[in-house]
Amino acid sequence: MFEARLVQGSLLKKVQEALKDIVQEASWDCTSSGLSLQAMDGSHVSLVQLTLRADGFEKYRCDRNLAMGINMGSMSKILKCAGNDDVITLKAEDTSDRLELMFESPKGEKISNYEMKLMDLDCEQLGIPDQEYSCSIKMPSHEFARICRDLSQIGECVVITCTKDGVQFSAKGDMGSGTVKMSQNLGAEKEDDQVTIEMTEPVQLTFAIKYLNMFTKATSLSGSVCLSMSNDVPLVVEYKVEDMGHIKYFLAPKIEDEDNDD
């Protein structure tokens, strides 16, 4: 029996919105410690990893580890039926192939129940090594979203260059090029508005903007975003989910290839 009651139901809605563009089907792993999800996009270029700890739920019960294969589109449709203020409860029997979702309006006068069919997914799980990154940049999430959106107008690739001066995003395209530079800014009043750069060595990596733009769907989850980079390893874009977990997106860099492109 799995049951999780989340008072702040909007969080789950936002999480779902942040996931559904990048993965169509994913396996939600329910363990006693919490909910987690790991999935790659269809082209196996990026990977998203979600963690929602058990203590973030008002009520959490997981008798047996479950892997719920969920069609993200369907889940998204159902979660759209929930109000932003609703309390969301997820329930699944150990043997059942259905997930029950219950939405309670804040005053309890309206209770909606939905059932979603689960799928049998054969998911490859990747082991993500803990890694020290050469650079980690924390910046306002809306700024990052804005930069990705703007530069996606210019070109398909963004070069992220992190030096001690700051972090620079640049894109080139047929019509020209664009560069956005963010300098470290610790003076902002809100912590979310601060730009902090921690680095041990300068990094320059190239990424496909379209994936970054998919990552920024999580912008509403958190006021700040953390980018972690090292040369020749995937970029990590991390959004905190309140105090109960995080969404981490991993994006493989574009590698300067002496070979031709296929």
Binding site: M40, S43, H44, V45, S46, L47, C123, E124, Q125, L126, G127, I128, P129, C157, T206, A208, V233, P234, F250, L251, A252, P253, K254, I255, E256, D257, E258, D259, N260, D261
Partner: peptide, 30 residues
């Protein structure tokens, strides 16, 4: 590779999208 010439090499340099699979190993458990 036997690279033809430095000029050509630079011309050929293109960013190739790497797969995330190349960076993370598969979990044996899964």
């Amino acid at each position: 590779i036997k690279t033809p010439s430095p000029e050509v090499k630079t011309a050929l340099k293109k960013n190739k999208q790497a797969s995330i699979m190349g960076f993370f190993s598969k979990k044996s458990s899964a």
